[in-house]
Simulated scan of single mutants.
Amino acid sequence: KAIEYPGVASVQIIYNIFRQRPSGLFFREAKAKNVGVIVRVPLASGLLTGKMTKDTAFAADDHRAFNRNGEEFDKGETFAGVPFDVALEAVEEIRRLVPENITMAQFALRWILMEDAVGVVIPGAKNAAQAAANAAASDVAPLSPEVIGELRNIYEQRIAPRVHHLW
């Protein structure tokens, strides 16, 4: 909706392997209107780092503990709106696609950077090492069409039925 207004220069939007809907109409329209796309929540609240398990605990003041179903604000802000257990299963499927020489976070960020409508990605980082590793994602080789296809299949089978229609 924002890109329909005159003078909009850029839009921040959630886009990640678990939130693929923007790659349809929105990215096409943003490009046509010369609106920059800034991707936020690219790692789905940390899920796409591959570091979480069913036993991962979050601090009481962490939105991943208190907003999983939209209790405080839009549930799509937490884990891209995907139920935690479903997302963990999808992460395990994704893990087998990640080359050994990169992290899952770099893999997920590189997937986003392959979308030519995206100008900037703003992942979070807890320390300088994570920030440097995230930045290195731009140096990762492009993902093959086969890998992109497998990621799309994982999304369509496991994730899309739960969230695609919402955002």
Results as ranks from 00 to 15, higher is better:
residue 1 K to S: 15
residue 2 A to K: 04
residue 3 I to A: 05
residue 6 P to E: 09
residue 9 A to G: 12
residue 10 S to K: 10
residue 11 V to H: 05
residue 11 V to T: 10
residue 12 Q to H: 03
residue 15 Y to E: 01
residue 16 N to M: 12
residue 18 F to R: 05
residue 24 G to C: 11
residue 26 F to P: 05
residue 27 F to R: 01
residue 28 R to D: 12
residue 29 E to C: 11
residue 29 E to D: 10
residue 30 A to F: 08
residue 31 K to P: 03
residue 32 A to E: 00
residue 33 K to G: 03
residue 34 N to Q: 12
residue 34 N to T: 08
residue 35 V to K: 04
residue 37 V to D: 01
residue 38 I to H: 10
residue 39 V to I: 06
residue 40 R to T: 01
residue 43 L to C: 03
residue 43 L to S: 02
residue 44 A to G: 09
residue 44 A to D: 12
residue 44 A to E: 11
residue 46 G to L: 00
residue 46 G to K: 00
residue 48 L to A: 07
residue 49 T to V: 02
residue 49 T to Q: 00
residue 50 G to V: 01
residue 52 M to N: 12
residue 53 T to M: 02
residue 53 T to Q: 01
residue 54 K to I: 13
residue 55 D to F: 06
residue 57 A to S: 15
residue 57 A to N: 13
residue 59 A to E: 12
residue 59 A to Y: 02
residue 60 A to N: 09
residue 60 A to Y: 02
residue 62 D to Y: 05
residue 62 D to Q: 06
residue 64 R to Y: 06
residue 65 A to C: 11
residue 65 A to K: 12
residue 68 R to F: 04
residue 68 R to H: 07
residue 68 R to T: 08
residue 71 E to M: 08
residue 72 E to V: 15
residue 74 D to L: 11
residue 76 G to R: 09
residue 76 G to D: 03
residue 77 E to Q: 15
residue 77 E to G: 10
residue 80 A to H: 07
residue 82 V to K: 04
residue 84 F to W: 07
residue 85 D to C: 12
residue 86 V to H: 05
residue 88 L to F: 01
residue 89 E to A: 10
residue 90 A to Q: 07
residue 93 E to S: 13
residue 97 L to Q: 09
residue 101 N to Y: 06
residue 101 N to D: 14
residue 101 N to M: 03
residue 102 I to G: 04
residue 104 M to G: 00
residue 104 M to K: 01
residue 106 Q to I: 10
residue 107 F to A: 06
residue 107 F to C: 09
residue 110 R to F: 05
residue 111 W to D: 09
residue 111 W to M: 03
residue 113 L to V: 02
residue 113 L to F: 04
residue 115 E to I: 14
residue 115 E to H: 15
residue 115 E to T: 14
residue 116 D to E: 14
residue 119 G to D: 13
residue 120 V to W: 03
residue 121 V to T: 13
residue 121 V to S: 12
residue 124 G to I: 02
residue 125 A to M: 10
residue 126 K to P: 07
residue 126 K to Q: 13
residue 126 K to C: 09
residue 127 N to P: 06
residue 130 Q to Y: 05
residue 131 A to Y: 09
residue 132 A to V: 15
residue 133 A to H: 07
residue 135 A to H: 13
residue 140 V to Y: 06
residue 143 L to F: 03
residue 145 P to M: 09
residue 145 P to N: 11
residue 146 E to P: 02
residue 148 I to P: 12
residue 150 E to A: 12
residue 151 L to Q: 07
residue 152 R to G: 01
residue 152 R to L: 02
residue 152 R to Q: 07
residue 153 N to Q: 14
residue 155 Y to C: 01
residue 157 Q to T: 15
residue 159 I to V: 11
residue 160 A to E: 06
residue 164 H to F: 15
residue 164 H to T: 14
residue 166 L to M: 11
